[in-house]
Amino acid sequence: MPVTALVSAKSAGVTTAALALTLASKRPSLLAECDPAGGTIRAGFLQGQVGAGYGLYHLAAAERTGSDALANAFANHLWPMDEAGHRKLLPGLTDPAQAAALGRTWPALSEVMHVLADEAGYDVFIDAGRLAIESGRLHTTLTPAPLLHRADLVLMVVRGTEQALTLARHLVDPLRTELADRGSGPDALGLLLIEDGQYRAHQVAEALKTPVLAALPWDPDTASYFTNGGRPPRGYGRSPLLRHARTATEQFEAAASRRHIQQQYPPRPANPQLAGVLQRLSEKGGSRG
């Protein structure tokens, strides 16, 4: 299953989208809240059920002990988001000042996430927060850059508004270059459209020169529940956001599978002689009748 990282140019609903995808997936799923600016799920959606003793920050100390210690700490710091334990959360930082301690932890944590996806069949979603660019590159402290480098898909979450597109337009090219130079390839980058605004998917794709891999509807009732917690809105399980999120997870799996196949079997270089033969055959066929 794919490891999918979600980012944004500014507040665009990354955490809400990541929660929807994690909760809607038909497979076991994990949401890793890796925003260096701090996590919001424990205080919002979970309404303080998870204390500071759980979460991302504690993995930094474990990683310094070794890979086994990190793997054990990772498993011990996952919080179940459903009764069956099929949806899990790695709670994020409680203080942005903690982000500096994670610099050397990100690569090892990425390995653990890929093992969970590849060997245990989990859909893994990474809430990577707001992109921070410095001198044309991902900021090494304000973004979890190694997680983006290794992800099967990197989704920029955008709304269909002029303001959102203007902000995203300045970040798409540096992010694509980063993935080309240090990541799994520029084709890992796609868009996740939040359908809030006047622009439709094809217009957003054209404006940002990047494919829209999925779209989620603007569903304020469900979004408010994911942001603030409390009692689920009426019809929550059949809400537009969850229904479309379920479809989106399938679209992401298909996109990641296509990338994997293309990486295994790259297109054969064109043969100029063969191309000439095909052209002549085409011309002869077209002249008949």
Rank of each mutant, 00 (worst) to 15 (best):
M1R: 13
P2N: 01
G13E: 03
V14I: 08
T15V: 06
L19A: 02
L21P: 04
T22G: 08
L23M: 14
R27T: 05
P28S: 04
L30P: 02
C34W: 04
P36G: 10
G38V: 07
G39L: 05
R42W: 07
F45Q: 02
L46F: 05
V50K: 05
G51A: 07
A52N: 07
G53L: 09
E63T: 11
E63P: 00
R64A: 09
R64N: 12
T65W: 08
S67F: 14
D68Y: 03
D68R: 13
A71T: 09
N72E: 11
N76P: 00
P80T: 05
E83M: 09
H86K: 10
H86I: 01
L89G: 02
P91G: 08
Q98M: 00
R104Q: 06
T105D: 00
A108I: 03
L109K: 05
E111V: 09
H114K: 12
H114F: 13
L116S: 02
E119K: 10
Y122S: 08
D123K: 03
D123N: 10
V124A: 09
I126K: 05
R130L: 04
A132I: 03
E134Y: 15
E134I: 03
T140Y: 07
T141S: 03
A145R: 13
P146R: 13
L148N: 06
H149T: 08
D152R: 14
L155H: 12
V158R: 04
A164D: 15
A164V: 11
A168T: 04
V172P: 03
D173V: 09
L179R: 04
L179Y: 09
L179W: 04
D181F: 02
S184Y: 01
S184K: 09
P186V: 03
G190W: 05
L192S: 01
L192K: 04
L193I: 01
Y199G: 06
R200L: 11
V204F: 10
T210D: 12
A215H: 02
A215W: 06
W218K: 10
S224R: 14
Y225F: 15
G229V: 03
R231E: 12
P232M: 15
S239I: 12
P240I: 14
P240S: 14
R243E: 14
A245L: 02
R246L: 12
R246K: 12
T247Y: 11
T249M: 06
E253R: 14
A254D: 14
S257P: 00
R258M: 15
R258N: 11
R259M: 07
I261C: 02
Q263K: 15
Q264W: 13
Y265D: 13
Y265N: 13
P267Q: 10
P272C: 07
Q273C: 04
A275D: 10
Q279S: 12
E283M: 07
K284I: 15
R288T: 10
R288G: 04
R288H: 08
